[in-house]
Amino acid sequence: MSSAGDARQRVLKPVGAAVLALLGVGAILSGVAFGAGSVDSPGPGMWPAVLGGALVLSAVAFLVLNRDGKEGAFGREVWNALIVVGSIVAFVLLFEHVSFLLASVVLLAGCQVAAGATRWLTIAITCVVGTGAAWLLFFVVLGVTTPL
């Protein structure tokens, strides 16, 4: 692995293990709060507490045993993924508060740019055709109601 990859792994691996451990501790505490009960009469909190314990143990095992270095798989392409996520967030907000048509156009345009489309005419045609087809399928044929 490159030195940049090593450095990334040195940071990401403990961070990943810490997130898992935190989740586990949260589950244990919540399980106790729900009422863990006893082995002969398990309460609603027992199973989450057991799973929380398993997560804490696996976080430790992950930190100590796992040396495959797969934590360094993030590269520049992550920016494209962020554009996709941003487009989806915009889609959901616009769909809920403005209109499906605008939301769909924003989503399709954003994702095509993230995927490397450069011809604006192709992007525009895909936006119009895709939005129209989805509108017809869901809101006309299947009778789905919009949130507005």
């Binding site: 889609f91 095509q112 939005t131 989805a134």
Partner: peptide, 30 residues
């Protein structure tokens, strides 16, 4: 796929919403 991917994503998102007409489900899916 730069055309098919975004179109499939749109259908997926509206599909999630259509199950219970719930925006919350779309956030969960995201």
């Amino acid at each position: 796929m730069r055309l098919l991917g975004p179109l499939t994503l749109l259908v997926t998102l509206v599909g999630v919403y259509s199950i219970n007409s719930s925006i919350f489900d779309v956030w969960v899916a995201l």
